[in-house]
């Protein structure tokens, strides 16, 4: 690799390959940039904005910004951490997130980022949206209250499962997770419980119907380890980060 292909991230020199984004290069270098909608196996979405970084006077999403030689990138600054905290608080306020009742609590990336950024409350008035649940599938349950509209399920379904079942529809506050079937119900699609899309949700929106609430508090992913140490893990992915 040519020595020209490197940039500075928080003062550390990071090598990249042509075509990589700042996020991809940082991950390969073992540097954690906070994120929610990014996953290395799928195309970038650039929607959650949690991975924002400062790049020569601009604020850009690291998951969509191409890495270039001699860039000076800042991520871990008080200003950006505060902005990320507000973004996470907004995500909490936009949905209906009742952690004490949620199967994913303790393994939830939204919650883990909130812990890591020192969130104690929403800051914003809760929107209290009215969103529909979907229990039509024999093996999967959908709780849209917890959806953060990251479209990871949509990308996993289209790019990995080759089914394109899950997607987002509507605009602004009316955006919601929908399923490609005439009835709009997940049960009327060919979604499978083993699909990648069914296991990619970073929060507790897409859940299996059985085997829940069996993990004791204290043994879950983020009970003792902040997300910046262990990465954006899912229950099935212990040992590897994304």
């Amino acid at each position: 690799m040519s020595n020209d292909l490197q940039f500075s991230l928080d003062g550390v020199s990071v090598c990249f390959e042509k075509g990589e984004t700042i996020m991809q290069a940082a991950q390969r270098a073992g540097i954690y940039l906070p994120h929610l909608c990014f996953h290395p196996d799928f195309s970038a979405h650039g929607s959650c904005r949690v991975c924002i970084v400062h790049l020569q006077g601009k604020t850009v999403a690291a998951c969509t910004q191409p890495a270039e030689s001699n860039q000076v990138v800042q991520s871990n600054t008080p200003e950006l951490q505060k902005a990320r905290l507000r973004l996470i608080q907004l995500l909490f306020a936009e949905g209906n997130h009742y952690c004490p009742t949620c199967e994913t609590s303790g393994n939830c990336q939204l919650q883990a980022l909130a812990y890591d950024l020192g969130m104690t409350h929403y800051h914003y008035d809760p929107f209290m949206p009215e969103r529909q649940t979907d229990g039509s599938h024999p093996d999967l349950f959908i709780d849209r209250d917890r959806c953060i509209q990251c479209d990871l399920c949509g990308r996993a379904s289209a790019e990995y499962d080759g089914k394109a079942i899950y997607t987002l529809s509507g605009r602004g506050q009316n955006t919601q997770l929908v399923f490609r079937s005439p009835s709009g119900l997940l049960g009327d699609t060919n979604a499978g419980a083993d699909d990648r899309a069914a296991h990619i949700c970073p929060v507790g929106c897409i859940l299996p119907k059985t085997g829940n609430y069996q993990e004791p508090i204290g043994t879950r992913l983020y009970d003792h380890h902040p997300i910046h140490d262990i990465g954006n893990l899912r229950k099935e992915e212990r040992g590897g980060s994304s």
């Binding site: 909490f92 209906n96 997130h97 009742y98 952690c99 004490p100 009742t101 104690t120 409350h121 929403y122 809760p126 209290m128 009215e130």
Partner: peptide, 15 residues
């Protein structure tokens, strides 16, 4: 606690 901060479990009736 959660209920003072976001309504908590009782706020699930808001649906």
């Amino acid at each position: 606690g959660a209920c003072a901060i976001n309504g908590g479990v009782p706020a699930m009736r808001n649906h």
